[in-house]
């Protein structure tokens, strides 16, 4: 499967329909790379003409901005916007809610105006349009607990698209006790994932708290929509010694598994 960049397309007579924004986690983290590869497979099977930026992509700047480092945020953002505008990008899909939020809500003020969708929204559309279908069987008898990421859910009000997709799998979808607007953070946002947590009077980590709550639903699978949530969940599950019993997947990975792509 050949993945084309916008630079590749520039040398062809045709233009891609959509840019797949991969993000740092999706590019470098071995676990998150699997999510990137899954989304590529989905786009491929749906017959969507997509491209990536490849080595021309940088961090959107979200963790820099939220840590308080506006200088580095502006450096990242302005550089990305220059590249995106040079290629006349209109539509972007990304599997990272943090990239999604910054591209969608923060780039316009800096001169970057794009139609940005999160991959769960796009996947739901592809299913609705009949461009991809979900084979039954893979998740029969499995319990799937869904975790709302903050930046898709509370920040951007997307609660239903991921659930609609999960409901199409033949597993049993379970809600966490705290879900939707009350969804509990995995602990990664605001650049927390890049530092140790502050001291806790109860010696509790945010991801352990969240994983504990999700495990109450006795899931076989925890489904999420954010590579950083997935890193935090995996870490929490390992700490609780449950990594043999419970798997954490991105929604795109579940589609790929169902269809054995």
């Amino acid at each position: 499967m050949k993945v084309y960049t916008l630079a590749d397309y520039a040398g062809m007579d045709t233009e891609p329909e959509i840019l797949f924004w991969v993000g740092c986690a999706g590019s470098f983290d071995p676990r998150a790379q699997k999510i990137t590869q899954s989304l590529v497979k989905i786009l491929h099977h749906a017959g969507i003409k997509y491209a990536v930026l490849g080595n021309e992509e940088s961090c959107t700047g979200d963790p820099a901005r939220r840590s308080g480092n506006e200088f580095i945020f502006q450096m990242m953002a302005l550089q990305n916007i220059e590249v995106l505008n040079m290629y006349k990008v209109n539509k972007i899909v990304t599997a990272c809610p943090h990239c999604f939020n910054t591209l969608k809500n923060e780039y316009p003020e800096l001169g970057g105006n794009y139609d940005v969708v999160h991959h769960t929204t796009l996947i739901q559309q592809l299913i609705d349009e009949g461009k991809i279908s979900i084979e039954g069987g893979a998740f029969q008898g499995k319990t799937i607990a869904y975790h709302d990421s903050c930046y898709l859910g509370r920040v951007n009000n997307i609660y239903e698209a991921p659930r609609d997709i999960l409901n199409k799998l033949d597993g049993d979808l379970k809600e966490a006790p705290r879900n939707r607007t009350k969804g509990f953070c995995c602990g990664a946002g605001g650049a927390q994932v890049f530092k140790e947590e502050e001291n806790s009077t109860t010696d509790t980590k945010v991801n352990h708290e969240r994983v504990g709550e999700l495990l109450e639903t006795k899931p076989d699978i925890i489904a999420a929509n954010c590579p950083y949530c997935i890193l935090m969940m995996n870490d929490g599950i390992k700490a609780k010694g449950k990594d043999e019993d419970v798997m954490v997947y991105d929604i795109s990975e579940l589609i790929v598994q169902a269809n054995k792509w």
Partner: peptide, 20 residues
């Protein structure tokens, strides 16, 4: 331009797909 300083390139994630 990435949150981690990595020895490999940003686009390397695509290699396994192409090799497959």
């Amino acid at each position: 331009g990435s949150v981690w300083q990595m020895p490999n390139e940003r686009f390397d994630w695509a290699k396994p797909l192409e090799e497959a």
